[in-house]
Amino acid sequence: MIKVRKSDERGHANYGWLDTHHTFSFGNYHDPDHMNWRYLRVLNDDLISGGSEFPNHPHDNMEIFSYVTEGKLEHKDSLGNIAQVRPGRVQLMSAGSGITHSEYNPSKTERTHLFQVWIMPSIRNTEPTYQELDYDLEELNNSLKLLVAPESNEGAMTIRQKTRIYTGQLDTNKSINLPVDRYGWLQIIKGSITLNGHALSVGDGAGTKDENALKLTAQKDTEFLWFSMD
């Protein structure tokens, strides 16, 4: 089964400093038909104006993954971590029993494009942790890059759930086979592709379940995220 979620079907809010789209119910947007996909609870597509921030706020019992496609995002948390996320650097915050943090666009003039992802953990009230991963953007050319995995020996950040998160880029007319688990979610960041014949473009997503094979073919140069879940 493949279930397409078109970009213009998502929840949307514009606060001036933040223009955001919600794939699943979040904040003031509630849709009982789109609460989550397996462990994937939040998938927000955020445009943050220069000099703007999410003020310090708490989280608990959620795995929070940040993927920046444009600009930078400065992170500060109650564990003492201060870092900037950017293209080629991702972060994973395991909120566990409780953590507070703030996020800030350090540029006064350039916007930040952020995908904010929440994964429901397999175990609750654990010790909060913070991780970062740097990689060469050239690694993404017509291939997949594993960013998050359940086991620490896979060369990725370690998540407290049976979930793997990949990023990738495909040139026009190039194809790739996605690693298949029982559930998956594909989110298109740039360009347009087909997924087993289903056409997807910027902002579109697709949930998969019990598919034996998944093939991506780029119609235009494409960037995407792939979530593989048991």
Rank of each mutant, 00 (worst) to 15 (best):
H21K: 13
H30T: 03
L200K: 02
S78L: 08
E70C: 01
A149G: 10
T112I: 03
S107R: 05
G80I: 12
S201V: 09
N196M: 03
Y29R: 08
K72Q: 15
D46T: 08
G155R: 05
E127H: 15
Y29A: 13
D171G: 02
Q169C: 13
I165M: 14
G51V: 00
Q91P: 00
I119T: 03
L214G: 09
L178P: 00
G80E: 10
P106R: 12
L146A: 10
H59K: 11
H75F: 09
N153A: 14
E53Y: 08
S97Q: 15
S122V: 10
Y166M: 06
F54I: 15
S102T: 13
Q169L: 02
S52V: 07
Y67C: 03
D45R: 07
T194M: 01
I123F: 14
M62Q: 14
H12M: 05
G98D: 12
L137K: 08
L133D: 02
D204A: 11
M35T: 14
H59F: 09
T172W: 10
R10E: 09
L47T: 15
N81D: 09
P121D: 08
P106Y: 07
K72I: 13
Q91H: 01
S228Q: 12
R10Y: 05
T100C: 12
G71R: 03
P87A: 04
F115V: 14
F224E: 01
R5Q: 13
K209V: 08
K6E: 13
R160M: 03
S175V: 05
L73P: 01
S228L: 01
L40I: 01
I188K: 03
N36W: 13
K145D: 10
K220Q: 14
L147K: 07
L140N: 05
L140C: 08
R86P: 00
K108N: 13
T129K: 11
I176M: 03
R41E: 04
G16Y: 10
H57Y: 06
N81A: 06
R160A: 07
E151G: 10
H21I: 06
